[in-house]
């Protein structure tokens, strides 16, 4: 077997292609289902589930228009970058019973950095569009990014720290956190105080998701009624289709991250199955968990409230959610030292 830098290129390449295909496909399917969810809650029928596929097919068949004031190379590169980076995130996240393709080559911290890359690509594309709406949208996206970074980081670090405190090796590796191999998860480590902490952090992550994905109430960077689509206002055709796909992949990635952190259980831990059946069952269960995450942190939130002002985004994410996250962290610390649940 040929190994380059300790990696089997065939396996990695094959895995990457498979994950990329899965990400785009699942992204579109989940977006279709999500639209159905939202429609149902608004007493509508909503578009058929295959609508996102039709949208992408239609966009792909159209011309990409580059505005006169735009910087063409940046403008055209941003969507590619957004899609590629979204897919890369998926390579680090365990998908059901499958270990991450790049397991062992990056951890949670890397994923957190990677999560900002699609947003940065959007910002770059927005600034490169040369439209006042897109410029304002880009500024807002940057502010949003800085706002949700703190609560997200707290949530992630609290979990990893608690695992480390429990004496688990390699706590920042997503495979460890999800307990894919060991079956040990955060919930089996913490005591009662830690459970409160975990629930608080789960709430924080639920609220970070819409900001990360630019959905209502945090769709300020796109804000159809304010900025006509903000960042994306000048995008059309193939470029827009790529952003659309990236959005789908990012949705899956965010949900998969939430699943890995907080809902890591696999069916095969509880039921004895043959290895192949276990993989299939775990994967199906994983998809179901993703759907549940999308339902609560995307659909319900987005139909249940009005859009925030950008100033609200900052104050709510830094103030309330940051505070809530810190409280969760405190609970985790208490749990580790006095709660008795830990194995310090």
């Amino acid at each position: 077997m040929v190994m380059i830098l300790g990696v089997d290129p065939v396996l990695v390449l094959g895995g990457t292609v498979a994950v990329a295909l899965f990400g785009m496909l699942a992204g579109l399917v989940f977006m279709g289902i999500e639209r159905k969810f939202a429609a149902r809650m608004q007493a509508r029928i909503g578009p058929p589930i295959r609508q996102p596929f039709r949208d992408v097919a239609k966009l792909l068949s159209k011309d990409s228009i580059v505005p006169e004031n735009a910087i063409p190379c940046l403008f055209n590169m941003a969507p590619v970058l957004a899609l590629a980076s979204s897919i890369v995130i998926l390579l680090y996240i365990p998908l059901g019973g499958f270990l991450p393709v790049l397991a062992g080559y990056g951890d949670l911290i890397l994923v957190m950095y990677l999560l900002t890359v699609p947003a940065l690509a959007l910002v770059a594309g927005g600034f490169a569009s040369g439209s006042p709406y897109a410029t304002v949208g880009s500024q807002r996206e940057m502010v949003t990014m800085m706002s949700y970074e703190l609560p997200l980081a707290i949530a992630v670090i609290a979990i990893a720290w608690r695992l480390a405190a429990a004496g688990i090796a390699d706590p920042f590796s997503l495979a460890t956190i999800a307990g894919t191999a060991s079956g040990i998860t955060i919930w089996s480590v913490v005591g009662p105080l830690g459970i409160i902490g975990c629930v608080l952090l789960l709430i924080v992550l639920t609220w970070v998701t819409p900001a990360e994905l630019s959905r209502v109430p945090c769709d300020t960077p796109e804000a159809e009624t304010e900025l006509c689509g903000g960042l994306l206002v000048e995008y059309s055709g193939r470029n827009l289709a790529l952003f659309y796909l990236a959005q789908g992949v990012k949705t899956v990635a965010m949900a998969a991250l939430a699943v890995a952190l907080f809902l890591p259980w696999n069916i095969s831990w509880f039921v004895a199955l043959s290895p192949n059946a276990a993989l299939a069952a775990d994967f199906a269960f994983f998809l179901l968990k993703i759907l549940a995450v999308i339902f609560f942190s995307v659909s319900v939130i987005r139909v249940g409230m009005a859009r925030f002002r950008i100033t609200h985004v900052v104050s709510i994410y830094w103030g309330y959610l940051g505070g809530l996250g810190l409280l969760g962290l405190v609970f985790m610390v208490l749990d580790a030292y006095i709660g008795g649940g830990g194995v310090l």
Binding site: F37, R40, M41, A43, R44, I45, G46, V300, G304, M305
Partner: peptide, 20 residues
């Protein structure tokens, strides 16, 4: 606090109002 949330969850299990 957010009165629309219980409302939409209830609506989720009701029939849509769309005229077909």
């Amino acid at each position: 606090f957010l009165p629309a949330i219980p409302e939409v969850l209830r609506q989720f299990f009701k029939r849509p109002a769309t005229n077909l």
